[in-house]
């Protein structure tokens, strides 16, 4: 294999992995105050991409206007999901993971409505303003400016998210809720607000991921499930709740997938990733970089 080919695959893999990581980080955001793993999270990425096509390509809106519109719309959907599918389950203290069913139901509704609305054709979404999808070279490395922008955005977003959790009161309050819901209430923190905010933020973040990912992978309604699985793999390998770990794991997954495409066809690549996931979870249940936390009973 030529060095150029290898580097091109790596660039592709890193960018792809960054998108997987974004799906995973969206899951983390919604998970933090609720301990709910939102199975509809992948569909928010899909909706971001499809609505991105609708607003930016079909309706030719200015990029920033259309993007804000998409992010707000999907964020609102996140709140709706929290209200109808998650809040009722959080109210009752139980070990039955009722939310697994209800968030799955929510995602099925989204997929099938989206299928009716957009049909199955892949759609084109324009690249970020000021960037292009044209290949350019720096030495042996082939890339495009959109890819660079995606990477910068992902890294910056993780910095921003970590800043919010560590430095702002709302971020600390979310940590407090995840640790002790009643304790948080006794300090005047309303867990329901934070749950709603987190679901809205997680959905909006994923919608944004969809918009910036769509130029790289074409938007279609089948995107959601695949990204949910990749996002899950990223957090399972990177450690649930660890955004930096998720980013790193996402990029590793992207690179493995990209490099293996030389020898493996699609089905085998998926099988390879599933195999890696099973093995890692068996050997290191808390993820590749996770601390060995006590297992939950």
């Amino acid at each position: 294999m030529l060095l150029e080919d290898f580097l091109a695959l790596m660039v592709n893999g890193v960018t792809l992995g960054a998108v997987y990581a974004m799906a995973g980080i969206g899951l983390n955001i919604a998970y933090k105050p609720t301990n709910v793993f939102n199975l509809a999270q992948g569909e928010f990425v899909m909706l971001g991409a499809m609505l991105g096509w609708l607003f930016l390509t079909d309706m030719s809106m200015a990029w920033i206007v259309g993007t804000i519109g998409v992010v707000l719309a999907v964020g609102a959907l996140g709140v709706l999901e929290e209200r109808v599918a998650v809040a009722p389950h959080l109210k009752v203290q139980s070990h039955h993971h009722g939310w697994l069913i209800s968030t799955l139901a929510f995602s099925i509704i989204i997929i099938n409505i989206a299928d009716q609305v957009f049909r199955a054709d892949p759609r084109f979404v324009p690249s970020l303003p000021g960037t292009s999808l044209d290949t350019m070279f720096v030495g042996p490395v082939a890339f495009n400016t959109h890819q660079v922008a995606v990477l910068v955005i992902v890294v910056a977003s993780v910095f921003a998210i970590e800043y919010v959790y560590r430095r702002t009161r709302i971020g600390k309050a979310i940590s407090a809720v995840s640790e002790d819901r009643d304790g948080a209430r006794l300090n005047g923190i309303n867990p329901l607000h934070l749950t709603m905010i987190s679901f809205a933020a997680g959905a909006a973040y994923c919608a944004f991921a969809g918009i910036i990912a769509a130029p790289l992978m074409l938007a279609s309604t089948s995107l959601g499930l695949a990204l949910l699985v990749k996002g899950f793999m990223a957090i399972a390998l990177g450690g649930v709740g660890s955004n930096w770990g998720t980013l790193l794991a996402g990029i590793i997954i992207g690179c493995v997938e990209s490099l293996s495409s030389i020898t493996l066809s699609t089905g085998y690549r998926q099988l390879l990733l599933l195999g890696i996931l099973l093995v890692v979870l068996l050997i290191r249940p808390n993820g590749l970089f996770g601390k060995a936390a006590g297992r939950s009973v």
């Binding site: 009161r169 300090n187 923190i189």
Partner: peptide, 9 residues
């Protein structure tokens, strides 16, 4: 941070 959260309200 714990004390800061005491002022969350």
């Amino acid at each position: 941070d714990n004390l800061d959260l005491g002022l969350a309200s």
